[in-house]
């Protein structure tokens, strides 16, 4: 257990140190800010032009601010396995005494911090430029909701990322999951707009509950009112982490058996 925890810590530290190995801090910050701002602006303009009262610009801006968590918490985590494969370090990781799940858990922990930073910046953008009123939001409820959303989304990312151990690359899967939330999770329009057959898919994504909880908090809900959604996300998160643990072991064995660890 201690060894695994040390593995998680070491992996998180390595992720932190390697963050700026290729992309410098300035460029990285521009990347985070520009992506969050322009994605939000695009959908706000579309919503403005559409004139649909059910998906007004402030509604869209708030949804996009929360969905910015996906870049790090889901995509970043999903891509971790693919990236190791890409640079040929997957086999080395597997030869260490720490289980692969814990190595990627460390990376996920680091990505959570980045995700929380991104969502804070995006909420500031939404509030400053796109008319999102957060003056009535309870800071404690907002923090609890964002932490729970991030926890569940990292778990979700770990589940998707585990497939990357076996597949040639997790990039294709990661890219799909990265943007699908914009369509399915009530980010840009209510889920009721989706065809009935597509709606169940929304409930698999933790982002759906996170977006709803943040909307509730922005509308003045306190910690007690959003506790149901927070508990639901925590439960989902635990479920995702447990599933990821099992999947990492399964795909690790499968990859070893088929010799696909270094296949890219």
């Amino acid at each position: 257990m201690l060894r695994d925890m040390l593995g998680v810590r070491a992996s998180a530290l390595v992720a932190l140190r390697s963050q700026f190995a290729i992309v410098g801090p300035g460029l990285w910050l521009i990347q985070i800010l520009s992506t969050a701002l322009f994605q939000m602006w695009f959908f706000v303009l579309v919503s403005n032009f559409a004139g649909d009262p059910g998906a007004a610009p402030a509604y869209v801006a708030l949804g996009n601010a929360v969905s910015s968590l996906t870049y790090s918490a889901v995509y970043g985590v999903t891509m971790s396995a693919g990236a190791e494969k890409h640079i040929g370090t997957m086999a080395t990781i597997m030869s260490t005494p720490t289980r692969m799940f814990y190595v990627f858990l460390g990376k996920g922990a680091y990505q959570s911090l980045i995700g929380l930073f991104t969502v804070a910046v995006s909420l500031a953008f939404a509030s400053l430029f796109f008319g999102v009123d957060l003056s009535g939001a309870d800071p404690l409820a907002l923090a609890a909701v964002l932490l729970a959303t991030c926890f569940a989304m990292v778990g979700f990312g770990m589940v998707i990322g585990s497939v990357g151990v076996y597949l040639r690359s997790s990039m294709v899967l990661g890219s799909i999951v990265l943007y699908l939330g914009l369509l399915l999770c009530g980010v840009n329009f209510p889920i009721s707009y989706l065809p009935e057959w597509l709606r169940p898919a929304s409930y698999i994504f933790p982002l759906t509950y996170g977006v709803q909880a943040v909307r509730d908090v922005a509308a003045g809900a306190g910690p007690a009112e959003v506790s149901g959604l927070v508990w639901l996300m925590l439960g989902l998160g635990i479920l995702f982490f447990a599933l990821a643990y099992a999947l990492f072991i399964y795909f690790e064995r499968l990859a070893l058996k088929r010799g696909s660890l270094d296949m890219f």
Binding site: F42, V46, A50, D52, A55, Y179, L183, N188, F189, L194
Partner: peptide, 14 residues
């Protein structure tokens, strides 16, 4: 693709 599909959903009322 997702950006355009979301746009279609937002425009469909109009």
């Amino acid at each position: 693709f997702i950006f355009t599909t979301v746009t279609l959903f937002l425009f469909r009322h109009a």
